[in-house]
Design a binder for these strands. Structure first.
Length: 281
DNA sequence: ATTAGACCCTGATCGC
DNA sequence: TGCGATCAGGGTCTAA
């Protein structure tokens, strides 16, 4: 599912039809995803205005005129699809209701936003705006990759005390928030670091380079509209195209674009890691 | 506290 | 065409 660049792309797609607009009617088609939806969610969303639409890590946060904030996580397969509006020059008619359409928001201005999530690993919650940062899902998150709290000294200090493979460390949302399996693989390739290296064994210059490369990869992916593999689509239904820029992810058995060696795949804490055995040491 | 593994759920794909 | 095994961008929970 979506990592930070995909979530940011979805947020940007939703901005023109959500921010500043009133939710005319909210419909909730089932009581839960993996976790229960908040009590009376449809009623609490209906008739309120979306003041701002922001992002924290892989979460979209909609601050509402009711004083509550809607928290949205897309999990692995969650989509937010827009219909009934002209987006990017194309008008999208309302599609027939589809399997796994869990929440539907009819917006002031005629747009409809449909949250569809086949695997139901996503989440929604409604909390007082004043307690957003204390929400259990958000309070444990590490710094934003583009924020001032994420810098060379911070990352070097945190990696130095971890015995776990650097791949697992960078996937840990407590350490830095927003990276997922694809972008960690891509970052480690650009850094020339083998995913199985214990985090504590990285040199300080390697840790320093990771800060820059994490920002570089994420920024390029956001610029490309994210990566479209199986489930992910931008809010306007279009595909992102960063997947064409993958240098190692899902390229097992193919030649390294730098040295020509055959790329390999290993499994680390249950997730695939793709890497070049020659370039990454 | 850290870490590995099971688990949550559906759907796509691949080998037979 | 069908069937089982495997895999998938997420995070949580348990137990060692």
């Amino acid at each position: 599912m979506p990592e930070l660049p995909e979530v940011e792309t979805v947020r940007r797609g939703l901005l023109p039809v959500m921010e500043g607009r009133v939710i005319i009617k909210a419909r909730v088609n089932r009581p839960d995803l993996r976790r229960p939806f908040p009590e009376r969610m449809a009623e609490r969303l209906t008739g309120v205005r979306v003041k701002t639409l922001r992002r924290r890590s892989k979460y979209i946060l909609a601050d509402l005129s009711s004083g509550e904030t809607l928290l949205i996580h897309l999990g692995m397969s969650g989509r937010m699809l827009i219909s009934g509006a002209t987006v990017g020059g194309f008008h999208h008619d309302h599609p027939a209701p589809a399997k796994h359409d869990h929440v539907v928001l009819d917006m002031e201005g005629g747009a409809r936003i449909t949250f569809n999530d086949a695997r139901r690993f996503g989440a929604m919650d409604l909390i007082p705006a004043t307690t957003v940062d204390a929400h259990p899902l958000l309070a444990v998150l590490g710094p934003e990759p583009f924020g001032n709290d994420f810098h060379e000294d911070y990352l070097a200090d945190r990696l130095r005390i971890r015995a776990t493979p650097v791949k697992s460390a960078l996937l840990d949302q407590h350490l830095v928030a927003g990276l997922g399996n694809i972008y960690v693989c891509e970052v480690l390739f650009r850094a020339g670091i083998h995913p199985a290296r214990p985090a504590r064994d990285l040199s300080s210059s390697e840790a320093v380079s990771l800060v820059t490369l994490i920002r570089e990869v994420l920024a390029e992916a956001i610029e490309a509209g994210g990566s479209s593999l199986k489930d992910y689509r931008k809010a306007d239904g279009e595909l992102g195209y960063f997947q064409h820029s993958f240098r190692v992810y899902d390229r097992e058995g193919q030649p390294c674009l730098s040295c020509g060696a055959t790329l390999e795949r290993i499994v680390q804490s249950g997730r695939s890691s793709f890497f070049c055995p020659v370039c990454q040491r």
